[in-house]
């Protein structure tokens, strides 16, 4: 008996073709990239964020639910630069999904499309958990988001060619609005220029470069190492000699260290949302930067 493989293959291809009419299944590693995918794809994509703003993107469990999501994804959008090195590779390998393996159109690393800062010259873990590809927290500079958006629009056009026109149109509208937003935020933040800040982790580097802030220290003694009493004591002493204007920590950071330093030095500490969902007001990318700048300006006053 000859099994009708050809016929079956035909039927399977037909079925496999069906999802082309459905929305593109996007899994974003972080909420900012989920929000960006929603902006540029609209109803043409269903978007799932693997993490929330209250979670530390460096340390995420490769949970079964995430493997299931990645297994069904058409496009995975992540920061890259080894930010997700502790969990994303596992999700990719275990998913059994060819589309989203690195090198395929379904794998998108935002960090590839911007100029990275703090690329280490030497790699030694005695300097903490440093990222060999440079600082991965690129989303704190909105100009980076525009660059990533441009690349992401092109990627959507490639993956879902049938709706290419829609992505182009939506993308153009977003980029224009975003450009206006960046000008507005720059205007609002102009008085902050030259201000010295202490941050919890080195995750505000791009914002500092954008607004011309000066980093006067971090609460972590080294990247990824939790604040120690000895290091905090050192910071207190340093701040008495040369005080910073603000202490910045992110929504996912433990606020204790910032509160401690603030209390000892009378330097105001401000929580910034860091990504979409990090504060009540930060519900999308626009409100994320509206709220971030508003909080900075209010705290620095």
């Amino acid at each position: 008996m000859k099994f009708p493989w050809k016929l079956m293959t035909g039927a399977c291809l037909w079925f496999a073709g069906l999802p082309a009419f459905a929305a593109v299944n996007v899994v974003a590693c972080e909420p900012e990239w989920a929000a960006l995918a929603r902006e540029v794809a609209g109803d043409n994509a269903t978007v799932y964020s693997a993490t929330t703003a209250l979670q530390d993107p460096h340390h995420i469990e490769a949970r079964p639910s995430l493997i299931a999501r990645v297994r069904n994804a058409d496009l995975v959008v992540c920061a890259g630069s080894e930010l997700e090195v502790g969990w994303l590779p596992l999700l990719l390998v275990q998913s059994g999904n060819r589309k989203i393996q690195p090198g395929n159109p379904g794998y998108f690393e935002a960090g590839q499309f911007v100029q990275k800062l703090e690329v280490p010259k030497t790699l030694d873990r005695s300097m903490g958990d440093i990222h060999p590809g440079g600082n991965p927290h690129i989303q704190t500079d909105p100009r980076n988001i525009a660059k990533v958006a441009t690349a992401l629009i092109a990627r959507f056009e490639q993956i879902d060619a049938a709706n290419a026109e829609a992505y182009r149109t939506r993308g153009k509208v977003f980029l224009d609005r975003w450009q206006a937003g960046v000008s507005r935020w720059e205007q609002q933040a102009a008085p902050l220029k030259g201000m010295a800040v202490v941050t919890h982790h080195k995750d505000w580097t791009y914002l500092e470069a954008w607004l011309g802030l000066r980093e006067a220290g971090t609460l972590e003694p080294m990247p990824g190492v939790p604040p120690t009493p000895a290091h905090l004591a050192e910071l207190v002493e340093g701040m008495q000699r040369q005080p910073a204007k603000l202490i910045i920590y992110s929504a996912y950071n433990d606020p204790k260290a910032a509160a401690f330093l603030s209390q000892r030095t009378r330097i105001p500490a401000v929580m910034l949302p860091f990504t979409v969902g990090g504060s009540d007001k930060a519900i999308d990318l626009f409100s994320l930067f509206d709220d971030t700048i508003a909080r900075l300006v209010a705290a620095a006053r």
Binding site: Q112, F113, V114, Q115, R143, A146, K147, T150, L175, D176
Partner: peptide, 21 residues
Amino acid sequence: AQVAAGQAAATADQAVAQSSN
């Protein structure tokens, strides 16, 4: 100018990033 410049810069950066990678 503005949007195009932004996009061109993105492309240039992309090239830089990719060549450095």
